[in-house]
Write a protein that binds this DNA or RNA. Structure first.
Lengths: 418, 418
DNA sequence: GTGATACGTTGCCAATGTCAACAAATCATC
DNA sequence: GATGATTTGTTGACATTGGCAACGTATCAC
């Protein structure tokens, strides 16, 4: 229950403009005027401040067919960069993502075994140090980490990452100390839903359920009423432990009859005769679609029916607009979307089912990079004036590398923003 | 994505002060200063505006033991009134609830049979007309209806109220036309969670799950991330249709093995040898606690275990701080809270279970009156300046009865606010 | 009664968005 | 190519609002 003062208005308006150009792509000043309802002169002043802070750039107007004075294009800067990190069992992936959506760098560092927390921090810090040098002229405003496990929202403590064997590890503090850059972390599936919500199949929706099927289990994330729902401590979205049967098989948490116990990637691979380590999501989907084995088909149907029970629970409880399926759940869905639809319809209230869609995730391998970068950008998007009070005259947005060697890009590719 | 201007700041600040004194009870100006972070002079100006609009009243300071000038007490007005309506199968209950929390009137109109939509509107409009006369000097700002069924949030259409037999009834429009007062409607359980959240056991919490057990089934409501989660169309919270077993019994929607199919008030009453129509929630709870029948105890245990499955799904999915149980679910809980706790713990992730509590609803029979009134107050709380632009000099907040007959109160009782 | 403390009130100030008038840049038409 | 219509950026005056400091006021402790 905080009161508003003038600074809040300015901050809010700057925040809205920055969010619009970051998430919606470049927009003309005239478009911003219409979208925000603010006055032309106000937009002019706000954009000027964002330009001065280096957060957006103004480009010459696009040639348009309309009469009238052309409006300059406002685009999020390529030079404001977040570092996205995703530690996994066999590799650590690090990306440098600009506010504009451009992925400047994408580095996958394979590890011989599942990294300990110390190894993960050391490896990441090393990659970050290199990125600092390479991206010397860019402002690195933060690091976002997508963790395959439970992450406490308040301080980024990794409560339990079963896959990696981490328990109660202060990942954020360690990585911040090792790099000198602010670090935020969250559950990977929560970040997946963030990415899908802003840049994927959930654009513009307010009530969104995301389920991701990974090799170690099923996780998910929620957007409810337009806000990412983390729950009290950030553990929301654990769909894998939803009860779907009276079976006795247990999941990773030792609970019987859950979605994660009944619907597994492992079982699908085994039925197909594929090796776990060598099969990515696309390969699995192609193999499932190509298979004419009755055993495989029966397994798929069985898993789809269990999945439907969990989705039905979510639909009845949350009345979402869209359910997004990622990982091997997307592959399952691709085999027989109609079966899933019918099964969910049979278990839900007609009114709630009427306007829900079930769709595969559209963002591919960059999903977690985009989500983790978004997490790191959030502080800046909430308050684009973070460096106010700075009297040095220098931009203080996050860390600025001292080294100014010309950057060379190994990867440079935009979000599917437009 | 709307921009802020000056009016928004003022509106927001007025809104916050009004919410504080409405939901938190009377507060001194000095307290408001501390709570909002606003300046003393600003609080003075804002409170003066609210007083002028008749929304709050300033009282002489309470005698305090502190040194210094005493601060006037700001309290929500008794004269700003919302009308709460709850149609049920055997009666229509109408209450007149003041912004201060005082319940000026509470009228239960018994109906010989389940009312049709036309009957419900006519009966309600009659009671409202009488309330208008009786409360002539008061401003009636709106009507809130708690409907036992699915209500579309966008326009208050009653999609399906199985208990009453209503399908796609434009209740809000009909009642607004019959009374001349703006009407809003929502699902009764959603309003229950609103009431519990602001005035009951969920005060100050941001993530809250509410399940209510009624004679016709099990409904519920959610507060997620501090906002009431209605889902895309307002149908969220239908916990009754969560799958809890592989059983073949079906619920009111024809779905088998759901919470509502396995956990019923009817079965409890039958085991106790009680009549449905004559047993209220308290009586049921006392009978359950007093019973030493093994059959009853086994049934209770069975129902508690099924309830635990549904609650565990909610905990894993939503990571709430509190689960509130109302109606006969509170009675079930009272019999053996520990059994329920243990059963939920066994089905949830330890991290998510660690900080969740399961508690009975504390608001009694006034629950829906308070929730429905809150729904009607919401527009005023969002924008206390609703009548700006009014040049007549008269207060235009909602309807003002023409008749000024001195009101006599049949019921006058405060919320459990303080 | 005196001082300390806490708080309301008042007048001035700074920040911000709005508005209206004007300038600039484009398209359509002649 | 000149002209008008249209759209938009720019500029300066303006209104509104909350912050702030000085002052006044009401209580308590001694």
């Amino acid at each position: 229950m905080q009161g508003n003062n003038h600074d809040d208005v300015r901050r809010h308006n700057l925040s809205i403009i920055l969010r619009l150009v970051h998430r919606g792509g470049a927009a003309s000043r005239a478009q911003l005027t219409r979208l925000t309802g603010l006055n032309r002169s106000t937009i002019g002043a706000l954009v000027a401040e964002l330009v001065e802070r280096g957060l957006v750039e103004e480009r010459t107007p696009d040639p348009t067919k309309l009469a009238g004075r052309p409006s300059p294009i406002v685009a999020a800067s390529d030079r404001i960069v977040a570092i996205a990190v995703n530690p996994e069992i066999d590799a650590i992936t690090v990306g440098a993502v600009a506010l504009s959506g451009v992925v400047h760098r994408l580095i996958r560092y394979a590890t011989p075994s599942s990294p300990s927390i110390a190894e993960a921090v050391t490896i990441t810090a090393g990659i970050v140090a290199k990125l600092k040098r390479d991206l010397g002229e860019y402002s690195i405003i933060g690091i976002g980490v997508a963790v395959p496990g439970l992450v406490r929202a308040s301080d980024g403590l990794v409560r339990h990452a079963p896959h990696l064997g981490w328990v109660d590890e202060p990942l954020c503090d360690l990585l911040a100390a090792a790099t000198g850059i602010p670090v935020v972390a969250a559950n990977d599936a929560s970040l997946g839903v963030t990415a899908e919500r802003y840049f994927g199949s959930g654009q513009g929706l307010t009530d969104l359920v995301y389920l991701n099927g990974g090799s170690s289990g099923i996780g998910g994330g929620l957007v409810i009423g337009g806000v990412a729902a983390g729950g009290q401590a950030g553990y929301a979205g654990e769909f894998g432990h939803t009860r779907v049967s009276d079976g006795i098989d247990t999941d990773s948490a030792g609970i019987a009859g859950t979605l994660e116990a009944e619907v597994t990637r492992h079982a699908l691979l085994a039925a197909l005769g594929l090796q776990a380590g060598e099969t990515d999501a696309d390969t699995l989907e192609r193999a499932l679609l190509a298979s004419d084995s009755l055993i495989v088909r029966n397994l798929v149907n069985r898993q789809l029916d269990f999945l439907a029970i969990a989705l039905a629970s979510a639909v009845n409880m949350l009345n979402p607009q869209l359910i997004v399926l990622g990982g091997f759940l997307a592959a399952l869905h691709a085999v027989d979307p109609e079966r899933l639809n019918v099964a969910v319809a049979a278990l839900t209230l007609p009114a709630a089912f009427a306007e829900v869609s079930i769709a595969p995730a559209v963002l591919g391998s960059n999903l977690l990079m985009i989500g983790a970068a978004e997490l790191a950008f959030e502080a800046l998007l909430v308050d684009p004036q973070q460096d106010r009070g700075n009297t040095t005259g220098l931009p203080l947005l996050g860390f600025r590398a001292a080294d100014t060697a010309a950057p060379t890009f190994s990867t440079s590719q935009g979000h599917p923003l437009s």
